[in-house]
């Protein structure tokens, strides 16, 4: 399973803060974004295991924690 976390406006849009994607086969970030229904949300930042990843072909594996995040607005 892949644990997907939603933050900020994306969490509001999804009406939840996380979801679990079942399965053990690797999938790309692009496939994961479509699977959780966020393909139309832009801009979208992605972190895998708390490291920001820019390559949408990056392969995700079971046990990964993935964060889908809007652009940051701290400070």
């Amino acid at each position: 399973m892949i644990n997907v976390l939603f933050f900020g406006a994306i969490a509001d849009h999804m009406q939840k803060r996380e979801c679990l994607l079942p399965g053990h086969e690797p999938m790309t970030i692009e496939e994961m974004v479509s699977a959780v229904g966020c393909a139309d949300l832009q801009p979208l930042l992605v972190a895998v295991n708390q490291v920001q990843i820019h390559d949408t072909d990056y392969l995700l594996h079971a046990g990964d924690e993935v964060a889908l995040m809007p652009p940051f607005s701290g400070g």
């Binding site: 933050f7 940051f72 701290g74």
Partner: peptide, 27 residues
């Protein structure tokens, strides 16, 4: 540091106004 903090640190702010609330888009 403050410029990069705004770009690189995963923190978000939502403004609460009398008319409702809205997430802030980056400046």
């Amino acid at each position: 540091l403050i410029d990069r903090l705004k770009q690189r640190v995963p923190i978000w702010k939502k403004e609460i106004t009398p008319e409702g609330s809205a997430w802030v888009t980056p400046h």
